[in-house]
């Protein structure tokens, strides 16, 4: 019981929300709803209202958003989007133009997004480390914008999308050879609520 209180936290907190969801599910299964369970449900409901809405403004309190991945075999799950559809496209050195392969992936993304209208996206632009910091931020922004523009042309509504650039700050590969660089020069489509 004490543990349950400790877990509950108001506001954006990954840990708390996850456990709350579990808690609420388990209490639903319990037929004998005691007072404590009801209280917990109420508190949980309150807690969930404190969630951030996606796209609720640039000045939002910068919380960490969470979506449930679901099963990769479920074609409507984010896991499927990341795995089978492909959530990222890659770029040539110092380029932000989409390759033919990139466009194919983006078309798949677009069709998935049209079939799953409850999701919005944040498009991340990244660059490899072979450049200066500010320029790479701007380059990442160009790449994200290129993806966003293309998705618009294949029918995704602009107000479902946001772009962000991380420049060279968030590489996925850390070796300093072209193989790693190529995988860092990317734009990632991140699903949000």
């Amino acid at each position: 019981m004490v543990t349950a209180f400790a877990i509950i936290r108001i506001g954006p907190d990954f840990q708390g929300k996850f456990n709350l969801l579990q808690l609420s599910k388990s209490s639903k299964k319990d037929n004998a709803m005691n007072d404590l369970s009801k209280a917990l449900m109420l508190v949980a409901a309150l807690a969930l209202t404190g969630c951030n809405k996606p796209g609720s403004g640039a000045g939002s309190a910068g919380g960490i958003e969470m979506i449930s991945l679901g099963s990769p075999s479920d074609p409507t799950s984010p896991a499927y989007f990341q795995g089978s559809v492909g959530d990222r496209v890659f770029f040539e050195v110092d380029q932000s133009t989409l390759t033919a392969q990139a466009r194919e992936i983006l078309e798949l993304q677009a069709s998935w997004l049209q079939g799953n209208a409850s999701y919005n996206i944040v498009i991340e632009g990244h660059a490899d480390e072979q450049g200066t910091r500010e320029y790479n931020l701007a380059l990442g922004a160009r790449r994200a914008s290129a993806v966003q523009d293309y998705l618009t042309t294949v029918g995704i509504n602009l107000n479902r999308m946001r772009t962000v650039s991380y420049g060279k700050e968030r590489p996925v590969e850390i070796c300093s050879i072209e193989d790693c660089y190529a995988r860092n020069r990317r734009s990632v489509t991140v699903l949000t609520e």
Partner: peptide, 9 residues
């Protein structure tokens, strides 16, 4: 400062 808007800085 630099401002990025619509992909351009």
């Amino acid at each position: 400062y630099s401002l990025e808007k619509g992909g351009n800085t």
